[in-house]
């Protein structure tokens, strides 16, 4: 039954591309909220630049998702036309910015994960995805260096900076397990060599986070209970507020262009 398996392959690829694209889009939007509010000018520029890279990655991934789905949906249709239950981004990236320490903690948890994931995606048997990943991975290495340096500086800085970034790592810890959750779509695409098994990245991720935190004189949180649900579209309340702002213009003026 080639036709049927093709349909299920298309659905699986669409789901995974949304997951990747939504991660980049939602994190990119969160980081853009720092624009003009950064602690120093250079940091304002850095966060805006990282946000721009994320939104660029999201555009490529969501365009490809729309083509894969084959219903004529563009990157904009997917970004501005879906409600939170249709979003497939990890819970971690939708968490509010908090103070600069919380933002950097979120950035480190996510970027170490993205570095491992995109490094593997460069070898995807899907040429388009491998091309997007090769480009994104170069950018992610710069992002990783940025948040690693800030983690060391804040963790090994003053009592106050140490306390604040530790609080960020502690508060966000329960949202990290969701990064590694899988669905039936993962099983299919891992077999086809299109994506790596994300669950298998967790051990390397934890080791790397632990190393950076210990260098920064910070403590790896020990909690074992993890919040989940993003794979089924069950998000925290924060995502709908973010989308409400991001989609306000297209909802007020559907089809507007300039």
């Amino acid at each position: 039954m080639p036709a049927m398996s093709e349909t299920s392959h298309t659905k699986a690829l669409f789901e995974i591309l949304l997951r990747l694209g939504d991660n980049s889009l939602v994190l990119g939007h969160r980081l853009s909220e720092w624009c003009s509010k950064g602690p120093i000018l250079e940091e304002d520029l850095a966060l805006a630049n990282i946000s721009l890279d994320c939104i660029g990655q999201a555009r490529l991934l969501l365009t490809y998702a729309g083509e894969t789905e084959g219903k004529g949906r563009s990157e904009d249709d997917l970004a501005y036309g879906r409600l939170s239950a249709d979003y497939r981004n990890a819970l971690l990236v939708e968490m509010p910015n908090g103070d600069f320490g919380v933002t950097i903690a979120r950035q480190l948890y996510y970027t170490v994960f993205a570095d491992l994931l995109y490094s593997a995606l460069r070898q995807s048997t899907d040429a388009q995805l491998a091309g997007i990943a090769a480009k994104a991975h170069k950018e992610i290495q710069y992002h990783l260096r940025h948040c690693t340096e800030w983690t060391l500086r804040l963790g090994d800085g003053t009592e106050e900076s140490n306390r604040r970034i530790q609080k960020g790592f502690d508060e966000l810890w329960a949202y990290t397990g969701d990064l590694f959750a899988t669905t039936e779509a993962d099983t299919q695409l891992v077999q086809a060599g299109i994506i790596p098994d994300v669950a298998a990245l967790q051990a390397a991720w934890k080791t790397q986070i632990e190393n950076i935190l210990s260098q920064a004189t910070l403590t790896l949180p020990q909690g074992t209970w993890m919040q989940k649900g993003s794979r089924q579209g069950i998000h925290t309340e924060h995502l709908s507020y973010l989308l409400g702002e991001m989609q306000s213009l297209t909802r007020a003026y559907p089809g507007a262009s300039w």
Partner: peptide
């Protein structure tokens, strides 16, 4: 180096 991120995506400060 002042910052790895500058006035455009391709430049550092």
């Amino acid at each position: 180096m002042v910052s790895n991120f500058g006035s455009t995506a391709c430049k550092a400060l």
